[in-house]
Design a protein around this nucleic acid. Structure first.
Lengths: 152, 152
DNA sequence: TCAGTATTCTTGAGCACTCAAGGAGGTAGC
DNA sequence: GCTACCTCCTTGAGTGCTCAAGAATACTGA
């Protein structure tokens, strides 16, 4: 097996373990999944604490459908509200509520802690983390929605 | 946000894109998902081309339940068969059929190609890939089948 | 020997996503 | 101001996993 394939499969597996770790901690403490947390994080960083659902989908790497379904429980528990656009009745914004902002702040602390734990082991030097970050950034755009994988 | 959290989230996103790319290519060409391919790959590398389902779960990073469900379609299309253990009636092996072995060989070629495409861009030197591999291995990316010297 | 416990696997219910289809609203050309 | 098309979002059906519960089998120690 080539190094390229080997590293691809390793990455897939490492992510599974990582997601479980985040889900477990965030779920236990704050009742949100990693996916929920990422929604809150993106909204929290957006202008006015809100985003069009289609833009959120792009930012999260999901389909619009996935956003609709993922947002529903967050709206139900009051972390996010739906807002209309005055000029274009097609678009619906997802906006952080005050409760959502609080939950985000708490979850962010917990997520930082999990990440710190993951990279805390003696074999992880700060330089390693930066190196990994750089390498992953190059992979970041790979195969996003606009890429139709025409291959060949 | 800390580097550790940043890199964790980057990894999660990179994986999503990577999985889509593999799924799309493998699905179009051979009618198997990346998850299916990984099952075949692990079985192909195992002693006798077969594994206990519980061991397969461990190797894949899934639950036993996930293996039962994932194996069902592969058994239905004849790539894998169920085999009993003579000494322990609890265990059921998943074993590669000849058709499964062929499909694995084909899918492996396609997967190599996808991985080569991903890491083909000019910014990826061989040393970078090895570095990334090393870093990911520390993250718990173990469980890949061992491979010796087939080179590339 | 046999009661209690552990292991392996399957199943039912549920969750989070996908794709395909469709409704509703906006836009451009004539 | 109509027609055709495009965009944004939701919904129905399906997939692939999870957890919890349970059946069958094996192991252990009094």
């Amino acid at each position: 097996m080539s190094d390229a394939l080997d590293v691809s499969l390793r990455l897939v597996k490492a992510q599974t373990a990582l997601v479980r770790r985040f889900d477990s901690r965030l779920g236990a403490l704050f009742g949100v999944s990693l996916a929920d947390f990422l929604v809150l994080l993106h909204l929290g960083r957006a202008e006015g604490g809100r985003m069009r659902r289609v833009d959120l989908a792009g930012a999260l790497g999901l389909t619009a459908s996935g956003v609709t379904r993922g947002l529903a429980p967050l709206e139900r528990i009051g972390l996010v509200v739906r807002e209309a656009d005055a000029r274009d009745a097609r678009v619906a914004y997802a906006a952080l509520t005050d409760a959502g902002r609080e939950r985000l702040a708490d979850a962010l602390k917990a997520a930082e802690q999990v990440a710190a734990d993951v990279f805390a082991a003696p074999e992880w030097a700060g330089a390693d983390v930066e190196q990994l970050s750089g390498l992953l950034t190059r992979l970041g755009g790979t195969g996003l929605p606009e890429d139709h994988g025409t291959g060949a």
